[in-house]
Structure formats: structure tokens, C-alpha cells
Nucleic acid binder design. Structure first.
Lengths: 156, 156
DNA sequence: TAAGGAGTTGGAGTGCGCTCCAGGCAAGCC
DNA sequence: GGCTTGCCTGGAGCGCACTCCAACTCCTTA
């Protein structure tokens, strides 16, 4: 299992509850996180954060007077969504497209909903695939577990 | 959804039933399929088939007297397993490892079972991830569906 | 005998998603 | 003043899983 393996956030499995983002560590108004803070919080490397910005997946990040990035709570929750969607296997390019739609404003909501619905279908399909694979795995594992006579094992 | 997107087999979703391979088109003994037949059957490109062989994922394929590949039913079902496992995101390298273990014979069954069990855990984890993402998607889609007032849409 | 189609090989190329590097700047501490 | 730490940039590099190419052989059908 190597594909789609993102670094896990520090807080282990803290995000099991689906649509509830982590409570932001700081109240709105004082939310000016450095890149390393965001890296620690999101589980994305600083490289990846800068790269996401470059490709338009997380645009318009604020800067300090010396030019350093200062992320907001909104940035954080956007990143949370992005991370979720990445886990589904959604292509980064598609998420960039979604981000563009959001930037373009209200008249794109239909297209956005469609994009999400398509993704939803994909997710359902992948769940079904995984479950069917699970059955195969269980079958094979059973073979190895309750049959230790030689000969059977070569067939796998 | 672009990652882990393999070409689908011709026979659409014929493999919904978990551990039952497609019945081999020919009885054992007359199973000497050409590479293009196997490509059509498995949904893998001929390039991929040869590449799998090179890296040790499908070794020792029979040859005709002129040196062309002739695949057996056993090869076909091995490929079916490989395709399933690929869908889980299992790395090709790990499958090569598994293939090596099979070749090494009976004394490796414990390690094989362990490999499969690890994969199984991964699959369970991914299903959980996907289901939690599904909840997020449903939440977002709902937002777009039953709320068309401007303003809400920028927040996503 | 000639053409066409399917197969062979080693090696190069591709697309994706990062990941790293070199060189530089600004702020804080001794 | 010098050192460290953290951040900045553009661009190069990497690992994976294919994907394609050129040049060739072999078989079949016309």
C-alpha cells in the first residue's frame, strides 16, 4: 500500500468524525499561522504547501510584512477538505479546477455540485471494489490459515 | 479520480462476485493464450503484461516454438489477483515480493499470510477513509443542492 | 514472393505528485 | 558582529507505474 499515502497528521486519527473539522487552534482574527504550523497541523509538508499554492490549489495566501506566508483558519479548513479529497484518489488537477470554480463565484455552483457528485460516484465505486477485494483477501488468508499441508500454497 | 485507474476489462463489471474468477475461456490443457488475448481478457495492456514479466510479477511465461508468449489459465487467474490487489493501492513492488514468496515454496506461507493480512488492514483503513470522505461529500453536495442563495457558495 | 499483421527486444519517454536543492533574506540571541 | 533558525524562490530531481519507440522476426494469406 504505497499509493496515495500522505503523511498522517500529528493528531492520530483525530478526524474520524466525518464533516467536523478540527477546531481551529486560534480564534478568527488571530489566525495567522506560519507555514510550519500549518504543516504540523495538516500533515502536509512545507514543500507541498508551497507547491499547492503555486499550482493554484491554495491561492492568495496572506503574507507578513517580510513576505512570509500567514495562513488563516479558512486556509486550514480548505486544506482539510483537500486532504480528504486526495485520499479518495481525486486528481490534484480536478481539485484545482474546483478551487477555480469557487474563486469564480456563485454562478459556478452547479458545476461544482456536479464535480462533487462525480467524485462521490467514484468513491462509491472504489468502496465496492475494495470490499470485493477484501473478500478475495479473506479467502486467501483463510487458505493459508487452516490448511498447512504442502502443495496448496503454490497455487496462489 | 485519476490515480489507480486501470483499464477496465472488456466484460463490464463481470467480476462483482468476489472470489470467483471468470471461468477460463478454454479448458486446462488447451490454455495457450497469446499476449493480445490476455490483454483483452485482463484489461492490462500488452506493454504492461511484458513489463510485469520483466519485473518478476508474472515470471516464467511459456513460449511457443518461435518465442512468442503463451499464457496459461493459471497465468490468467494470477493476473486477476494482481489486478484486484492493484485496485487496493498495493504497490507493485509488494506484489513482486509476494510472487517471489510463492515461487520459493511452502516454507514461506507464514510470510505470505502476513503480507496479505497487512494488505487487508490497509484495505479496511481505506474503506473507512472513503466512507468518512463520503460523508463530507454528501454534506457539501447538500449545501449546494438545497441552498441557492448567494454567499454560501464561496465558503467551500 | 510480397505484403500485412502480430509478436519480439532493450531502452527511452511520460505524467503525476511530490521532494529537494542552492542561494538568499530577516529576525532573535550571545 | 556572528551564529542560528525559519522562511523565501525558481528550478531540478525523484519514484512509481506504466507507455511508447525502433528495429527486428515470424507466420499467414493472396
Amino acid at each position: 500500500m504505497t499509493l496515495v499515502q500522505l503523511r498522517q497528521p500529528q493528531s492520530e486519527r483525530a478526524d474520524l468524525c466525518a464533516s467536523a473539522d478540527l477546531p481551529p487552534p486560534r480564534p478568527d482574527g488571530q489566525d495567522r499561522y506560519t507555514i510550519s504550523e500549518v504543516s504540523a497541523h495538516s500533515g502536509l509538508s512545507v514543500h507541498t504547501l508551497r507547491w499547492y499554492e503555486r499550482i493554484g490549489l491554495l491561492p492568495n495566501v496572506d503574507r507578513s510584512h517580510t513576505g512570509q506566508r500567514r495562513y488563516t483558519n479558512a486556509d486550514l479548513s480548505w486544506l482539510a477538505l483537500v486532504s480528504k479529497l486526495r485520499l479518495t484518489g481525486m486528481a490534484v488537477a480536478d481539485m484545482v479546477r474546483y478551487a477555480e470554480l469557487v474563486r469564480q463565484g456563485d454562478h459556478t455552483t452547479a458545476e461544482r455540485r456536479e464535480l462533487l457528485s462525480t467524485t462521490r460516484e467514484d468513491v462509491l465505486r472504489r468502496i465496492a471494489e475494495l470490499q470485493s477485494t477484501l473478500a478475495v483477501l479473506d479467502f486467501k488468508i483463510d487458505l493459508y490459515s487452516d490448511d498447512d499441508t504442502p502443495g496448496v500454497s503454490e497455487r496462489n
